[in-house]
Design a protein around this nucleic acid. Sequence first.
DNA 1: GTATTACCTAGTAATTCACTTGGTAATTAG
DNA 2: CTAATTACCAAGTGAATTACTAGGTAATAC
Lengths: 155, 155
Amino acid sequence: MRLSTKGRYAVTAMLDLALNGKNGPVTLAEISENQGISLSYLEQLFAALRNKDLVRGVRGPGGGYYLGKSADEISIANIICAVDEWVEFTRCGGRQNCSGGARCLTHTLWDDLSSEIFNFLANISLGDLVRRNLGKKEEEESPLSVVGDSNSQAA
Amino acid sequence: MRLSTKGRYAVTAMLDLALNGKNGPVTLAEISENQGISLSYLEQLFAALRNKDLVRGVRGPGGGYYLGKSADEISIANIICAVDEWVEFTRCGGRQNCSGGARCLTHTLWDDLSSEIFNFLANISLGDLVRRNLGKKEEEESPLSVVGDSNSQAA
DNA sequence: GTATTACCTAGTAATTCACTTGGTAATTAG
DNA sequence: CTAATTACCAAGTGAATTACTAGGTAATAC
């Protein structure tokens, strides 16, 4: 597993899309403005996200991006793997050169941990994140503010 | 949260230490040999680990490293934070320049997710990892064989 | 004293990060 | 049809990070 600032940018952008894309596509220019990420970097990230069918682009005026599936079907692990390329952690290169003992054991331990982290992130969806936070907001403060309504919560 | 190959090296080395350090200190030369990590890179990692009291060095012949506390008191998050410096993810720089709406909301969402990942890793100790794997080994195969083949999951 | 170990500093090639520049292709509005 | 708008694409870049090498010093055991 790999979790870098690049993954954070991708998750942040996807969150923005999930929040603002409910009625119509969202342009990268908007996300760039909202989140303070350069447009061209977003283009690169979204190329990767598109390859994994996590987003769908529409060209021309009025175009932009939709989520490729429902927010509940997109896990955080999906997003991070799409942009971070999931470098397969050495795992002894097929057990050939692995000196038999301590090395392979720690590799196994690491692999186990690694898949636990992956499963953890695979069980959190974009939809979860959004709902969880909106719920919290409504508990903590007045339900009217900022996000309760159907349309643009960009404020 | 940040989870890079550097963190993996650190966790791997700490696992090696936990496994082999039960009777006497372990030298970095041994870990370097066992895990295929360069000696000098290990020195750098262990400098960071030592700063956080996760390991304790003993100089001179017969010296090496001990765990700084019991394996149960050392979490994976501790290790990763020690070497990866935990870059506090922008979080709007105190909410000044954060344009009030969507940006701050996604930052909050990310921060929540980030602390969830942290808590997850904070709840796994070195001791957990070792015990879990040894237990599994004993179930799956004969307790004698040091390290076998078996599982290759993790994707 | 000498060997062994931790401990420290500086440098480095390769890679990654986040971005800039400068395009092309599809679609809509006029 | 033309012009504007958007996605899409490719190449390059400075800065940072990675994993390592080289060359030390300091403490300790024998």
